[in-house]
Design a protein around this nucleic acid. Structure first.
Length: 329
DNA sequence: ATGGTTTTTACTGCGTC
DNA sequence: GACGCGGTAAAAACCAT
């Protein structure tokens, strides 16, 4: 035991001595000569350069290659092959970059640890966690991202939306938009905005149903965040609601298609401005179900769309009128 | 706060199964 | 008689100003 340790040390010091020697004597590379003055070349290991001993000309700089390791034939492959480690994700408060200590009391080879070492690891875990989430912003983020994640899964929103929501939240945090507003409110607003940006909008009611904050606060915070961050979000397109409603009602693709067409016609006629997109979508779905003889009742549609039957009636009349107008032209 | 617009609530009448 | 649907009036909610 002691034997191996000592020999290891000795080897190391010997190795160090050797490099020192190389540097101090500036061991000129026999095969190379300076292109300028033909003097001997020396390698400066500290700066990673090859310099002419005589005139000081830097012949070669050993630059670090930041590029990918292998040839890549498209951007996707390039991403995969770049040598910069695991992808970062905005969904974790530290982007997945900080140290993690596994919970199992095993070393790198899978062997169990002695009780002493186990204690030590436990302390390390504790402190690592404390450092990692120490300052308030980090803690803030951690909580908010947890909320976003929870709500997104409850609403069946894809990861891409969560990413976007995370980015929005980060920006809000960075621009000091938080003071005076609740973390959860801003997190919810971020998710709402992200869902709309991604073209998979959820209505305020749906969002409010899974959030811990009231609807009006979400709406207020959302408007605020959008304004301050100057996010550009167009009004929701009614068509984006159609697939969800259609599938909730077990309607055929044909009905879905007709609903879309109805909405497009309405758009051309300009009937849609000022009306709630959800209501339009619901009406279109209902109207389409009539046209394809897949009867669904108004109350069923109003149920899945969270829209009153009256609104459906009003809208779908308008939709059918718009359709007639189109026929005439 | 205000006024204009849209949506909701509540109710009533009609036709059908 | 229950159900789906249509219409209406008044209240409530929403939005820009």
């Amino acid at each position: 035991m002691t034997e191996t340790v000592r020999s290891y040390d000795r080897d190391r010091s010997r190795a160090r001595a050797r490099t020192k020697e190389d540097e101090s004597t500036d061991s000129p590379d026999e095969s190379l000569h300076c292109p300028e003055c033909n003097g001997p070349l020396a390698t400066d290991t500290e700066h990673g350069e090859t310099v002419c001993d005589h005139c000081g000309l830097v012949v070669e700089e050993d630059e670090i290659d930041h590029g990918p390791e292998w040839r890549a034939f498209d951007s996707k492959e390039k991403d995969q092959k770049s040598r910069v480690g695991a992808p970062t994700t905005n969904m974790m408060h530290d982007k997945g970059l900080s140290t993690n200590i596994g919970w199992q009391n095993k070393d790198a080879y899978g062997n169990s640890l002695s009780s002493r070492q186990r204690e030590k690891m436990q302390r390390l875990r504790t402190w690592n966690e404390r450092f990692r989430t120490r300052d308030s912003k980090e803690r803030n983020l951690k909580q908010a991202l947890g909320e976003i994640d929870r709500m997104a899964s409850a609403l069946g929103l894809p990861d891409s939306v969560r990413e976007t929501a995370s980015v929005i939240y980060r920006r809000a945090l960075q621009d000091d938009l938080l003071p005076g507003r609740s973390i959860e409110g801003v997190a919810t607003a971020a998710l709402y905005a992200a869902a709309r940006q991604a073209g998979t909008p959820r209505s305020l009611d749906e969002i409010a149903a899974v959030s811990r904050v009231e609807k009006d606060e979400i709406a207020r915070t959302y408007r605020y965040v959008v304004r301050e961050l100057k996010l550009e979000i167009k009004p929701a397109d009614p068509e984006q609601y159609v697939p969800r409603f259609a599938s909730d009602l077990d309607l055929s693709d044909e009905s879905e298609r007709r609903a879309r067409q109805l909405l497009q016609n309405a758009k051309e006629q300009g009937v849609h401005s000022g009306k709630s997109p959800v209501g339009l979508a619901a009406a279109a779905v209902y109207a389409a179900s009539l046209l394809t003889n897949e009867k669904v009742t108004q109350s069923e549609v109003s149920e899945v769309a969270n829209i009153s039957e009256v609104t459906i009636r009003n809208r779908y009349h308008e939709l059918l009128e718009a359709e007639e107008q189109i026929q005439l032209t």
